[in-house]
Design a binder for these strands. Structure first.
Lengths: 344, 344
DNA sequence: CCATTTTCTGAAACCGCTATCATACAACCT
DNA sequence: AGGTTGTATGATAGCGGTTTCAGAAAATGG
């Protein structure tokens, strides 16, 4: 029903080719006809139909962004960073199509399929890294050559880029602080899912400290959660019930850290006096929490920005990249209260 | 470059029409040819090109979602609620295209124009409500008949629906609590932008309490911020500098509440002993903050869900809706510490 | 002044898919 | 046998743009 280029051409008394030329500001067109067409456009309130243009160009100018949970403000920051970069850097016309997986593999698969059908030009993904998803992503790469940038995860599916925080080093510093400054020797680790590479990297950083300090590694004190508040809560409760609660807890992300603290509180245990807690990342406005978390600071918006940057490079590159570019963003240790510093 | 329906047809030795029939699962096609085509599809890893389909159908199956700040977890929840609803209710194929305005009118205009060009089928928007934007939105309605659902704002541009929290009633209850339970008589109001209708509604609720209690209204104590942490901080600092700090502060959203509290703390003022603070909404994990905010509870994911619901109805409706459906979600007063309850 | 180049314009093919129409053959009824 | 259905298939015209090609008009040059 909307106005199309034929209507404009008719109104201006020219051919569609000419109308197209003034719309695209390309090719030869005389000043007088140009303004006639412009007047027609204004009069009819014509807007070019991007769908048609896309079909002709064979491009969609859209980018898919798949993440676990958009209501996690850090993902939000990443989206914002990516959006900002895309809009300000050449890719004026690129759009972001959003997908929430809630950490479920089948949602991710659906998202990926939809993106392929919609012919997005690139994918930014924080994958659940399930076998099915990886297989599908590899196919997307091989058959459709859609560049993929992974957040926080080394997928090994031919992705053009990976953006992570300094996972191993970061958790190393966090746990070092617990061991060397506060002299803890029984530290519980609440890690992320074992199939996600950044979860492993973080865990590895913790274990390096254990090995260097020659601390015993108790399997019961190394648990994996799915990054959620509930899992952090549950794992801590279990330790309490089994009466194997450590003197300090490392949590691989903020939500699990919150869960752990809540569980401790419910059992009238004080943080950090009774049990110290450190977490890989902080909450928004974490400085207003009690206790304030000792954590690592890293810039999620920067992560989003870098993913977008790598992706646009991947889209524009003619040659197939052989090795993915791996960008590690620096993290800095922020010492607050929950580790035992500043206490009393 | 990707495989298209012609390739499939050729591979299967049938016409494109027949191939199309089996792809769409419509019309007559014999069992034997059907399976031949299916095998071809599988072999070639064919995926229908949605862009082409969209052009033919004259539909895009996409919905634009415009908001101030995706890194605000409440907006994130709204997006999630909307997404969930869209995916689970018939609109299997609908996609969400995201736009961040950062509260800037010119970004919003760009977003709206892009959405029109992309021919989104509907728009969910938390508008800055600037004159320019409203005019443009009205045009979108009138010329392109794209249904619009507004979040938290009565735009008056022919939107098919509006979803708000119980703004007036909510702030009425909050301020009532300050006046009737804690007997404050000098209350500072940090409101939102005057052109946004829900900011006005919230302010109106506060003023109703003032009038009923016959409290004096000091103009200096009624300020507007742009919903940001910084504005809440700055307004409070100004009151302190001018030495007109009230004994209680009402903030129209969470971020401004956080800003106010930070400003008070920097000046060594205790909340709630020296100054009470209440805020329209809470932070994520607000129960772990100190002090815990007395606030109103309302379900952002529900808001997202309702907007999506109204929008899908608007998209499917043949007739032009005359009056927008206005859904007011209930809010409940959550009494915590920052008002002065539970203190000592 | 005619040949050449440059500027301007329109007809038509095409992007990948759907939908209408026409055709063909089989099956069913009197 | 002849007429209606019902089933199965293909050719083709769009959807709304862009782009190639070709031809006309204007500008340039020797």
């Amino acid at each position: 029903m909307p106005i199309n280029i034929h209507d404009v051409a008719r109104e201006a008394g020219v051919s569609v080719s000419t109308a197209s030329r003034v719309i695209r500001e390309a090719g030869y067109v005389s000043q007088s006809t140009r303004s006639r067409v412009q007047i027609a456009i204004e009069k009819l309130q014509y807007r070019p139909n991007m769908t048609a243009r896309q079909l002709k160009y064979g491009r969609t100018f859209s980018i898919g962004f798949v993440m676990g949970d958009i209501s996690n403000p850090f993902f939000g920051l990443a989206v914002k960073g990516a959006e900002q970069f895309i809009r300000s850097n050449g890719g004026q016309e690129y759009e972001l199509i959003l997908f929430n997986t809630n950490g479920e593999s089948h949602s991710e698969i659906k998202a990926i399929e939809t993106m392929v059908n919609k012919r997005v030009e690139g994918i930014i993904i924080a994958s659940t890294a399930s076998d099915e998803c990886l297989e599908l992503l590899r196919k997307v790469q091989d058959e459709y050559h859609i560049p993929i940038v992974s957040i926080d995860n080394e997928l090994g599916v031919g992705e053009v880029g990976i953006v992570t925080a300094g996972n191993t080093l970061g958790s190393y510093e966090l746990v070092s602080h617990l061991v060397n400054v506060h002299h803890h020797s029984r530290i519980g680790l609440i890690s992320g899912p074992a199939q996600e590479s950044h979860a492993c990297e973080r865990l590895e950083g913790c274990l390096q400290v254990f090995r260097q300090a020659a601390l015993p590694i108790e399997d019961d004190l190394i648990q994996s959660g799915k990054w959620s508040y509930e899992d952090g809560y549950q794992i801590t409760q279990d330790w309490i019930k089994k009466d194997i609660l450590p003197t300090a807890i490392y949590c691989s992300n903020n939500l699990m850290g919150m869960g752990a603290i809540s569980a401790l509180r419910e059992n009238n245990l004080r943080v950090p006096q009774d049990v110290a807690v450190v977490s890989f990342d902080d909450m928004q406005f974490g400085h207003l929490l009690t206790p304030r978390l000792t954590h690592l600071d890293y810039a999620w918006d920067k992560i989003g920005e870098e993913t977008a940057k790598l992706l646009l490079e991947g889209i524009n590159a003619q040659t197939e990249a052989v090795n993915p570019v791996h960008i590690k963003l620096p993290v800095t240790l922020v010492i607050r209260d929950s580790c035992g510093c500043n206490c009393m």
